[in-house]
Design a protein around this nucleic acid. Structure first.
Lengths: 206, 206
DNA sequence: AGGATTTTGTAGTGAACAATACAAAAAAGG
DNA sequence: CCTTTTTTGTATTGTTCACTACAAAATCCT
C-alpha cells in the first residue's frame, strides 16, 4: 500500500486548545492509561510537536492539571460567586458541578481531579501537593463568600465559614463520584433543595 | 555474575492473601499503573502462578474489586450496623471511613473504589457496572438501618431513608478524597459531631 | 516410601510503550 | 524571490509491557 500522503503542513496548532484536549484524554483514560498515541491523536498534533511544546508526558500532565484547575474546575465556583442570593448561589454551585460531571462535551464523566488526578496522586511525582492545594484553595474561596454573608447577616456569625465550605465541597465530591460511576444526574438534582437548605442551616439545632 | 540461587520452593501461596495484596497494589498505582512486576512482587508470587490462579490482569482486577467490595469496603458499614444508638452508629461509620482512608496498613490512602476503580470505570471493560452496583448496594444498606430507626421512632417517619443514606455516603466520599490528597484526618474528625447531627436532623427545618 | 500431580523459578515471546533523529514543507523577512 | 527559521511527518530507538513454555522442586496419595 503506497500511502503517499501529500504531506500538507497545517499551520501552528493552538497551544491552549491542545492542552485542553490533553486534559480530556487524561480524564478519560487516566495518567498511565493515556498513551502518547492517544494524546497526540486527541490533541491533533504529532509526537515531536508535543515534546517540543510541553516537554515530556509527565510535564504535560502537570500542565494539564494546572489548566483544568484554573479554568474548568472553576465553573461551579464562578456560578457560586456570581449569584447574588446565597441560597441561589449554593444551588448554582451544586447544579453546575452535577451538570459538568454528567454532561461534559468530551464524554468524560465525573471530575478530572477527583478521578484521574486523585488516582495518580500517590504514584506520579508532584501531583499530590497540587491536588492538595487545589482543595484548600477551593475551601477558602467558598468560605470567603460565606464570610461575606455573615457580614450581611444572612448567615449565623458564630459558625466557622471554612467548616461550611468543606461541607459543601464534600457534597460535590459525592456527586462527581456518582457521576463517574454512571449514575443518573436526575436523582442528584432531586436531592438538591434539601441539601442546599442543609448547607445554609448547618449551624442550627446542633 | 553467576547468580546461582538454590531455588528453594516455598509451599502453595494463600489465594485470598495474594488477592488482598493485589488490591493494595492496584490501590496504590491504579489499574494501568500497576505492572505485572509490581503485582507479582507485591503478591509474593510469580507470573505463571498469577495467571494460573486468577486468569489475566483484567480478571485479577475484577476479582480484586469484588474482594475489596465484600470485605474492606464493608468495614465502615459493619461499624454502622453494629452500634445500637443511631447517633453513635453514624459517627462510627464516619470515623471508620476516615481512619481507613488515612491509616491503611498498606500505606495507600483514600479508598480503592473512589480513586483507582473510579478512574478505570470509563476505560476498563466491566468496571463501571460493578462500581455502580457497589454504590447502590451501600445506599440501600445504609437506608435499611434508617428504616429501622423510623420504626423505632428515633427518626422522622416522613423523610426518605434513601436520601438520608445518599447524604451520609456522599460525605464519606468527600473524606476519602481529602485523604487521597494527603490532607490530615484530624480536621475531618473535628467536623464529625456537626456532620453526624446534620445527617440525623436532615429532615428538620427544610 | 515412591510415583503422580501440582506449583514453582527461569527465560523468553511479540507487541506496545515513551521518547528522538532527521529531512521535507510551511511561514517570515528583506 | 530566495534565504532563514520553525513546525511538521516518517521512521526508529531502547525499554518495558502482558503473557507463556518449559523443567525442576515440593506436596499428595496409596
Amino acid at each position: 500500500m503506497n500511502n503517499t500522503k501529500k504531506a500538507g503542513r497545517p499551520r501552528k496548532f493552538n497551544r491552549d486548545e491542545a492542552l485542553l484536549a490533553a486534559v480530556n484524554v487524561f480524564w478519560a483514560k487516566g495518567y498511565d492509561g493515556a498513551s502518547l498515541k492517544d494524546l497526540t491523536e486527541g490533541m491533533g498534533i504529532n509526537g515531536p510537536s508535543l515534546y517540543a511544546t510541553f516537554g515530556d508526558k509527565h510535564a504535560l500532565y502537570l500542565q494539564a492539571i494546572d489548566r483544568y484547575s484554573t479554568n474548568d474546575a472553576c465553573a461551579p465556583l464562578v456560578a457560586f460567586e456570581s449569584e447574588q442570593d446565597i441560597t441561589a448561589a449554593v444551588r448554582a454551585f451544586m447544579v453546575a458541578a452535577i451538570d459538568y460531571a454528567t454532561h461534559h462535551k468530551s464524554g468524560a464523566r465525573g471530575c478530572f481531579l477527583s478521578a484521574c488526578v486523585a488516582t495518580s496522586a500517590g504514584e506520579v511525582e508532584g501531583v499530590q501537593p497540587v491536588l492538595r492545594q487545589a482543595i484548600e484553595d477551593t475551601d477558602k474561596r467558598l468560605a470567603a463568600r460565606f464570610d461575606l454573608e455573615k457580614e450581611k447577616g444572612t448567615l449565623a456569625a458564630n459558625f466557622p465559614s471554612l467548616e461550611r465550605a468543606r461541607l459543601m465541597f464534600d457534597l460535590r465530591q459525592g456527586h462527581v463520584f456518582r457521576a463517574r460511576a454512571g449514575l443518573d444526574g436526575d436523582t442528584m438534582l432531586s436531592d438538591l433543595d434539601q441539601r442546599t437548605a442543609m448547607v445554609l442551616r448547618f449551624d442550627e439545632g446542633v
